[in-house]
Amino acid sequence: MLPEFTLSRPADIDEVLRELNADVVPYAGGTELLLAMKMGLLVPSGLVDLKRIPALREISASESAIVIGAGATHDEVARHELIQAHAPLLVQVEQNVGNARVRSQGTIGGNLCFAEPRSDLLALLAAFDATVLLRSVRGDRTLAMAEFVLGPYWTDRAEDELLVSVAIPRPCPTGAYVKLQVTERPTVGVAAVRTAAGRCRVVVGSVTEVPLVVAGASWDDIDADGIVAQVEPVSDIAGSAEYKKHITGVYVRRAVALARDGAV
């Protein structure tokens, strides 16, 4: 069961920033946080509820980027017309994150901050060259995905920082994301996209501690066997290291084949 905690429900971001510290943490969908609290893995003394701050749920487009508020749920992202118009691959991925309850409750920001290595979004957003905006009373920081995600369940977010939004540079890359998923989370997930600059980029997720990014000038430069050699999966209930390496190769080839054919 949940340990005791205080709950505050601020109406704006500044108020949130004044409250955050090592012991008082942001709370949105709760799909990761509350489970960790129930299991006794996290015991914060206070939660700051972000759900009543409309600004955190906004999705907007500028000339240079699509900006997604960190408090937008997976469903909200998948249904938003700007995302549907400009990032159809993100729509496809968001429609298949977790399960129906996770998609309706869980937020894109919570997903990234939890940095679960088997997150679809970590891999896809790395493929998109997305950046995250962190804010604290000390100021703003913008980090690339690779700078933000430091390891499993470990990000560069400081205890007093709030993840405000995710920005995907425009035009958004197109391509494919494929995954093998037997339980709640993928065993391997691979994104293959062609960037606006014409580069081919493959990101392997779930099977590695942090997403593995490989790029080349053409799809022929993507060496599936070379990627397999680079991943060092661990054997666990989802599969042996041997099998995970094997399917990494299978899914890299599948993702590249789909992207080459011009999937979304």
Partner: peptide, 16 residues
């Protein structure tokens, strides 16, 4: 018959 077990079956690999 998890995917890995079936893959091992197909490839005559020992059980995991």
């Amino acid at each position: 018959l998890t995917p890995e077990r079936v893959w091992r079956l197909l490839n005559d690999l020992p059980d995991d």
